[in-house]
Design a protein around this nucleic acid. Structure first.
Lengths: 161, 161
DNA sequence: CACCTTTGGTTAGCCTGCTAACTATTATTT
DNA sequence: AAATAATAGTTAGCAGGCTAACCAAAGGTG
C-alpha cells in the first residue's frame, strides 16, 4: 500500500519516453563524432550493418538487421550511393533483388567510422557491467514482445467490429 | 576471456538500436488504441503530460516534461488547438509565455485516453517486476549521462580546432 | 502455357524529432 | 531612462521513421 503513486503517476509513460530520448542521445553522440566524414545518423548506422553482414548482402537483409522498413532503407542507400560510398548491383540470379557493395572510398571511411563507434560506445556503456547490459537487453526484448502482442490484439479487435 | 565476441560484435550497436525500436513499438501500441479518438502519438503523449502537470502550465514546462524542443511542441500544440482540445492563453504577468488549458472536449477525451494508456502500459510492463523496471530506468539514466558527457567532449574538441 | 500470387524494391507523402533564425517581451546594465 | 542581453514562442526547413500504392521479376497452379 505504499507503492501506488510511483508506478501509476510517474513511471507509466516516463520509461517509454526516456527510451526515446536516450536512444536519440546515444546516436547523436556518435553522429557528432563522425560528422566530419559527412555521415548522418542513419547513414553511418547503415554502413556499420552492411559491414557486419558483409558485402553482397541484399537490401532486405539490411532492412531486417536495422529493424527498419524497406522504404526507409531505400532512401538511405540512395544517399550513400550518391556519396559514392556504396554500389547497388542487381543480383543476376534474382533480378528483383539488389546486392550492396562498398566502393574504395566507402571502405576507407569505414575504418575511421569503426574506430569512432568503438570509442563512443565504450564511453556510453562505461559504468555498466555485462550483466547489467545483458539484463537490459533482455528486458527490452520482453517489452518489445509485450508491445507487439498488444498491437496484434488491437488489430484483432478492429477486425471484429 | 570468453566474453569478447558478444560485446564487440553484437551488443555494441544493437542495444542502442533496440531502444529505438522498442520505443517506437510501445508508442505505436497506445496510438493504435487511441486512434479512434483522432490522436497521433505525439498528441496523446502531450495531452497526458499536460494533465500530469495540471492545466495552466506553460509551453516551456511541457517541453521539458516531454524532453522535446520548443519547435516540436509548438507544432503539436497548434494541432491540438485546431482540434479544439486545448486553448493557449497569454500569461497576463509575462506576455511572452502562454499557458495551456483543456477545453471541455479535451477533458472528455482525456478520460478515455487515460484508461487506454493505463491498460496498455500494464500490458507492456507485464512480466517485469518493479525492481527490474527500476533497474532499467536507472541504467537508462546512466547511459544518458554518458552520452551527454560524450557529446560535451566532442564539442570541446571542436572548439580547440 | 497462361494466369495469379508473392516478393524485392521504389515512390509519394505523413508524422515527429531537430537546428537556425526570427519576433516580442522582460530583465539587466550602464 | 536607454541600450543590451536573455527568454518564450514561432516559422522554415531538414532527417529519418512509417504506410499505401505501385512495378517488375519469380513462383505456383489450373
Amino acid at each position: 500500500m505504499d507503492k501506488q503513486v510511483p508506478f501509476h503517476e510517474t513511471l507509466n509513460l516516463t520509461l517509454i519516453g526516456n527510451m526515446g530520448r536516450v536512444n536519440r542521445l546515444c546516436r547523436e553522440a556518435v553522429t557528432h563524432a563522425v560528422e566530419p566524414l559527412g555521415l548522418t545518423q542513419s547513414r553511418w548506422t547503415t554502413l556499420m550493418h552492411i559491414k557486419m553482414l558483409s558485402e553482397g548482402v541484399t537490401q532486405l537483409e539490411i532492412a531486417h538487421s536495422l529493424s527498419i522498413e524497406m522504404p526507409s532503407l531505400t532512401r538511405i542507400l540512395k544517399q550513400l550511393e550518391e556519396q559514392s560510398l556504396i554500389i547497388r548491383r542487381i543480383d543476376e540470379y534474382d533480378k528483383r533483388s539488389k546486392k550492396i557493395y562498398f566502393t574504395d572510398k566507402g571502405r576507407q571511411i569505414l575504418s575511421s567510422l569503426q574506430e569512432e563507434v568503438d570509442e563512443i560506445t565504450q564511453q556510453i556503456y562505461s559504468g555498466l557491467n555485462h550483466q547489467q547490459l545483458d539484463a537490459m537487453a533482455h528486458h527490452l526484448i520482453k517489452l518489445e514482445q509485450n508491445a507487439q502482442a498488444c498491437i496484434k490484439q488491437q488489430i484483432q479487435k478492429k477486425v471484429k467490429k
